[in-house]
Amino acid sequence: MKVRIVVGIIGLDQHEVGAIAIARLLTLHGFEVIYLGRFQTPQSMIAAAVDEGAQVVGASCHSWEFISFAPELAALAKQEGVAVVLGGSVITPGDAVRLRRAGIDAVFGPLVTERQIIDEITRLVA
């Protein structure tokens, strides 16, 4: 069965290029993507994952809003038994350490390769 992953952008940030690129990449590698687009909240992302029976939730980050929403997103994901990943060019190595500590399962900064993204998400749902 295909792995289902919810992809969206949380908050008021309207940059969508990264989210569309990642959705496309995941689809190419056999994932089933439920694309939510902009203006999501941690609650709306997790609710969609539950509704759609997705195993993973992924938020694309092109503003600093993720610093604020990550803990809540991680807590809700844990509660529902869903894996949660964050990715985006604004995420620094320092952020990656803090986000993992806050309960985000995988973090993809700007220097990550496509292979690493696919392998990491595959490992999360194995």
Binding site: G11, L12, D13, Q14, F39, T41, S63, W64, E65, I67, S68, F69
Partner: peptide, 22 residues
């Protein structure tokens, strides 16, 4: 910033994480 562009006031709950950052 993102809230101003979306015509959302800074004291709206959706704006709290980003006021003035972009």
């Amino acid at each position: 910033d993102t809230a101003t562009m979306a015509l959302i006031d800074p004291d709206h709950s959706m704006a709290a994480a980003s006021v003035g950052t972009t």
